[in-house]
Simulated scan of single mutants.
Amino acid sequence: MPTTPRSHATTALHGLALGDALGSQFFVPANRRALTERLLPPGPWQWTDDTEMACSVHRVLTSHGAIDQDGLATSFAVRHDFDRGYGPATNRMLRLVREGGDWRALAAGLFDGNGSWGNGAAMRVAPLGAWFADDPALAVPQARASAEVTHTHPEAVAGAIAVAVAAAVAAGQPGLRPGHFLDQVIALTPAGLVHAGLVQARRLLTISDPVLAARALGNGRAVSAQDTVPFALWAAARHLDDYEQAFWATATAGGDIDTTCAIVGGVIATRAAPPPSWVERCEPLPAWADVPPEALLRSRS
C-alpha cells in the first residue's frame, strides 16, 4: 500500500499515543518495579495531554495541509480535558482562550513575558514531522508555527523543530544509520541549548546504557525542551527500527516518561511497528481525531 503524507502522520500519531499511554503507567507506584523488570502493567493504558494535543496537530494539518495557528489554538482549547495531566500554565491559558482570550498574547506573556520553554511543543509534533518525510526542511517552519501557539521561548521552538525533523527523517529514509539520523536533525535545529544537547547526544551514541545517557542529557524531569529532546532523540537514534526496545530504553531512564516515550514512539513508528499486544491495551484515540485505528500496526518495509 503506498504511503502518503497523511498515512505517515497518522502512523506517527498512533506511535506517539502508545508511547505516551504506556509510559504514563509507570508514574503509578505499583508499576515502578515492573519497569525495572520490563514487565507490562495491566491495561487499559490511558494516554495524557501529550496525545490529546497531538491529535489537534494532526487534525489541523490534515484539514489544511499546513498549520493554521488560529485553528490549532481553537482545537487545543475546545478539546482541552483538564484531567489529562496538563501543566498549570497550559490549563490556565487554554481556559482563557476558550473564554475569548488572544492566544498570541497569552502564550507570549507566560513566565514573565519570556514564554514557556517546556517540552509541550516537542511532545506533540511528531505527526507533523512525519507528514514532511519527503523534505524534512519543510517541517521546520511548520513545527515553529505549531509550537508558537503555546510555547514562544526559542528553546521550546527548537525542541519542536528537532522532533519534527527527526520524525520526517525517520519516515523518509529507510536503512538510516543512527549518526546520520542525528546529523540531519542537528543541521536543521536552531542554535541554543537544545542544539548543544543534540550535539552531545550524537557523541554519546557509542554508549548503550540509557541511564548513563540521561545523566548527561537529562530525562525530562525538569520538563524543559533542552532537558527532554536530546535524550529522547538519542534513544530514537539507538533503536530506529525496534519500537519495543526503543520504548524500554527510554522508559528505563525515568523522568518525564510519558513525554519522552511519546516523542520516541512518534518519531520511529513509521518504520518500526510496536507489538500488537501493546496496541490492544492502549486507549483508542478520540473519535474527534478521525484517524483509522489500524495505522499503528503498519511498519515500513
Rank of each mutant, 00 (worst) to 15 (best):
P293R: 15
P292L: 09
A34D: 14
R298S: 10
G19F: 11
V163G: 04
A214K: 00
E52C: 10
G115S: 14
R203E: 15
Q245A: 15
A170N: 13
H153I: 13
R202A: 06
A222T: 07
P274K: 12
A167C: 01
G254C: 10
L204P: 00
P178H: 02
A54F: 04
G15L: 07
G101S: 08
A133H: 14
H80Q: 09
V78F: 01
R6F: 12
P274L: 05
S277W: 13
Y86I: 08
C55N: 05
L138E: 13
A168I: 13
A34G: 14
A272W: 05
A34H: 11
D242L: 07
V157A: 11
A17S: 15
Y243V: 03
S75R: 14
I186A: 04
I161H: 04
P210A: 04
L182G: 00
L193S: 13
G115C: 13
L138I: 03
R298K: 04
D83G: 08
A143K: 02
T48Q: 02
L22Y: 05
S224W: 01
F27S: 10
A262N: 01
G19I: 08
V229I: 09
A167E: 01
G15T: 09
V57D: 11
A236H: 09
A187L: 15
V229W: 03
R95I: 08
W288H: 06
S299A: 15
P292F: 00
A108I: 02
A162H: 10
E37V: 10
L205E: 12
H80Y: 13
I268P: 02
G265F: 13
A225F: 02
R84L: 13
N119S: 11
F82V: 15
A170P: 11
V78R: 14
A130C: 12
P42V: 04
A143N: 12
T62K: 03
V267R: 08
P154A: 12
L205R: 06
R33D: 15
D227V: 10
W131Q: 01
I268R: 04
F231S: 05
R271P: 04
Q142W: 05
G265D: 12
A167Q: 00
L233K: 10
L193C: 02
Q226Y: 13
V169W: 12
C282E: 09
P41A: 04
G85Q: 04
A235F: 04
G175A: 14
H180V: 14
V57Y: 07
A237K: 04
G254R: 08
Q25A: 07
G120E: 12
W234V: 01
A34T: 10
T206A: 08
A214M: 03
S24V: 00
L35K: 13
E155P: 12
S56V: 15
I186S: 05
L138W: 08
P2K: 09
A170C: 15
D183P: 05
C282P: 10
P286E: 12
L285H: 07
L240H: 11
I186F: 07
L96P: 08
N114K: 15
